[in-house]
């Protein structure tokens, strides 16, 4: 059993938990994730390690309520327990010789972006960041990203904060102005990572994306998380989740993510019936946000 020490609402339907998990905290590195299961009968879902504190033995996760399990997770409070919490999983990311990096986070992707930029910042690398969300109130971790960036751009789709438009607009501008980066990290909905990688490709700048296929065990045992990278099958849970964005078959990933669409809907409807429907509209909004 793993205790929730702290709960914060970062935006409507986006929540942050600090979990007591000393062994995971001790080994965690940027780029890694955990798999949790709320209770017996629950689904195993992967969530990125958004921050960790080895000294205090805590791991921070940030999640968006998009379906049954994330919604149920959102009903838990500080002091409650989660049945299973496994990690750290996946390959840590490393940037040994980088001098200047651009980090792009779209929507919830800002959370997994943060630990990477934090590490780069601590290594003394020059960090430029672009973060964006659908609307101002959905923008998360702005302060945190700011403190680890030398320069930060904020965008919203509806113009309610910062630049009006997608993060890719700023990306394009920077590249067109001839700014150089040793690497560009793009994390967000698959379609953003796809378009972003297409933009950076002609400039020949290494581009890292973090993939989010459906997972079960997270140990390389089921193969459900397979993605095609450079024409080869890779298991995102053990070979990734970070990959070279110029080589990922994003269309396949996007299709595979829809495998259980009907079942997810049934699951959520039952949950909503049992828990009152007041949040439904918000969730539908969030869902749209996640697929965009």
């Amino acid at each position: 059993m793993f205790k929730i020490l702290e709960k914060r609402e970062l935006a409507p339907s986006i929540k942050l938990f600090v979990i007591e998990a000393p062994l995971v905290a001790k080994k965690a590195k940027p780029g890694q994730f955990v798999i949790l299961r709320i209770k017996e009968g629950g689904e195993r879902i992967p969530l990125t390690i958004a921050d960790y504190d080895a000294q205090n033995g805590t791991v921070t996760i940030v999640f968006q309520e998009v379906g049954k399990t994330t919604r149920e997770l959102g009903t838990l409070e500080a002091g409650d327990y989660i049945e299973d919490f496994v990690g750290p999983l996946g390959v840590p990311v490393e940037f040994p010789n980088h001098k200047k990096v651009l980090g792009i986070g779209g929507g919830l992707g800002i959370a997994p972006l943060y630990p990477k930029l934090k590490m780069l910042h601590q290594q003394g690398v020059e960090v430029v960041s672009i973060i964006g969300a659908r609307t101002a109130e959905m923008l998360i971790l702005e302060e945190e990203i700011k403190t680890v960036s030398n320069r930060m751009y904020v965008c919203t789709d509806d113009g309610s904060k910062g630049r009006h438009g997608f993060v890719t607009v700023v990306l394009k501008e920077l590249l067109e102005q001839g700014e150089k980066f040793d690497e560009i990290i793009i994390i967000g909905p698959p379609i953003l990572m796809k378009i972003g990688s297409e933009i950076t490709k002609p400039y020949g700048i290494p581009t890292m994306v973090s993939l989010n296929p459906i997972m079960v065990d997270g140990t390389g045992m089921c193969g459900g998380c397979r993605v095609t990278v450079d024409g080869e099958i890779k298991f995102a849970c053990v070979d990734g989740p970070a990959f070279d964005g110029h080589k990922v078959d994003f269309d396949e990933l996007i299709k595979r993510l829809a495998t259980y669409k009907e079942e997810e809907k049934i699951s959520l409807e039952i949950f909503n019936k049992a828990h009152g429907c007041k949040l439904i509209n918000k969730i539908e909004g969030a869902d749209k946000d996640a697929v965009k």
Partner: peptide, 20 residues
Amino acid sequence: EFLTRINLMKAYSFPNTDTP
């Protein structure tokens, strides 16, 4: 994956269990 979903995750009880 097929057997794990069914045996370990009890997908045969879906939607009483959560794994489809």
